[in-house]
């Protein structure tokens, strides 16, 4: 199972995704990027049934970009999350539902506020201070419950994230080939180096 973790800090959202792709008993990729940039200040991370995941993510990306060019301004993060949820919800009761779990990290430049939306494959959408998907949440949520503070700085957030990864390295039964970390803040979306 893939790992998705999201943490909001005072002025940013941190999104970590596992880098491995496994088919059956084999690891077939070790530098996978499980994220797509929706706008300059919003990042979507996804896990689940392969094929569904990138297909759905890129479909959402295309629609949100289209909204941007059509209207001359970008969708708010709340709207992006609602739109994504709605697409997932209508697919849920169709012939072939998408099996995709999603985190959406966003930064509102005007309100100077970072948001994180947790959406599961059943299309339940909640805004949370920190969140995770998959087996990772069993290990990570309790750590975050104890140490997260909504007013923490980005540096403190990254330290906390490192602790989470450390715990996962120790407890997860399979090697997930490390994580890729992206930050969404005032300056936009950027990927952090290997050892962030």
């Amino acid at each position: 199972m893939d790992i998705l973790i999201g943490i909001t800090t005072k002025d940013s959202v941190l999104i970590a995704t596992s880098k491995s792709v496994a088919r059956g008993v084999s690891v077939i990729k070790t530098n996978d990027d499980k994220t797509r940039e929706l706008t300059d200040h919003s990042l979507l991370a996804f896990s689940g049934e392969s094929g569904d995941t990138t297909n759905f993510a890129e479909y959402i990306q295309a629609n949100i970009r289209l909204y941007g060019t059509r209207n001359g301004f970008e969708m708010s993060n709340k709207a992006i999350a609602s739109f994504t949820r709605n697409e997932l919800a209508s697919a849920l009761r169709s012939r072939k539902p998408y099996q995709v779990n999603i985190l959406i990290g966003g930064y509102d430049v005007k309100k100077k506020k970072a948001t994180l939306n947790w959406i599961d494959y059943l299309a339940a959408n909640v805004e949370l201070p920190y969140a995770a998907h998959g087996y990772a949440q069993y290990y990570v949520l309790s750590l975050l419950d104890r140490h997260h503070d909504p007013n923490m700085t980005q540096e403190q957030g990254l330290e906390l994230l490192k602790d989470c990864i450390k715990e996962l390295r120790l407890r997860m039964p399979i090697d997930f080939k490390g994580v890729q970390v992206k930050v969404v803040d005032e300056a936009g979306v950027r990927k952090l180096p290997e050892d962030f």
Partner: peptide, 8 residues
């Protein structure tokens, strides 16, 4: 009940 249906 099911959260997604609650929202929908």
């Amino acid at each position: 009940g099911l959260a997604t249906d609650v929202i929908t």
